[in-house]
């Protein structure tokens, strides 16, 4: 196993659904998708966003797009119009997720 940052394995976009942040995580290559599915679990994402996401994390799979969609509940300090954050709509939550490091098999070649 080797540790790889998600930035190298996936790309992402985030937006808001009320006080929930939605983060779409897309495998940069189809062969990265299985390890994303295995390692980037709802629990792992909840731990990664400790101090930011107060509520639960839900994960939905889109195998047709080699993608995962995460809903982070109570993650925007009240939501778009109420939140006092500079990033009230969570537009940069996408790359916050890409900071995560996961274990991948040694034989997986990552560019």
């Amino acid at each position: 196993m080797k540790k790889i940052q998600l930035l190298r394995l996936a790309h992402s976009r985030s937006g808001d659904k009320g006080d929930a942040s939605n983060i779409g995580l897309i495998a940069r290559k189809p062969e990265y998708y299985p390890v994303l599915k295995e390692r980037v679990t709802a629990d792992a994402v909840k731990r990664h966003f400790a101090g930011i996401c107060i509520g639960k994390v839900e994960r939905f799979d889109l195998p047709n797009l080699y993608a995962l969609n995460f809903l982070l509940h109570e993650a925007l300090a009240g939501g778009g119009t109420v939140s006092l954050r500079n990033d009230a709509q969570g537009k940069t939550m996408s790359t916050a997720l890409l900071r995560m490091e996961i274990d991948v098999p040694d034989e997986l070649i990552v560019e």
């Binding site: 659904k17 939905f60 969609n69």
Partner: peptide, 26 residues
């Protein structure tokens, strides 16, 4: 792909007044 994943909840049930669209079928 990036736009399809923007501001969605459960992708298998994208609810609109006309229809529920299944984004996992796209």
């Amino acid at each position: 792909k990036e736009q399809l994943l923007y501001e969605i909840g459960d992708p298998s049930e994208y609810i609109t007044p006309e229809v529920i669209a299944d984004f996992t079928s796209i």
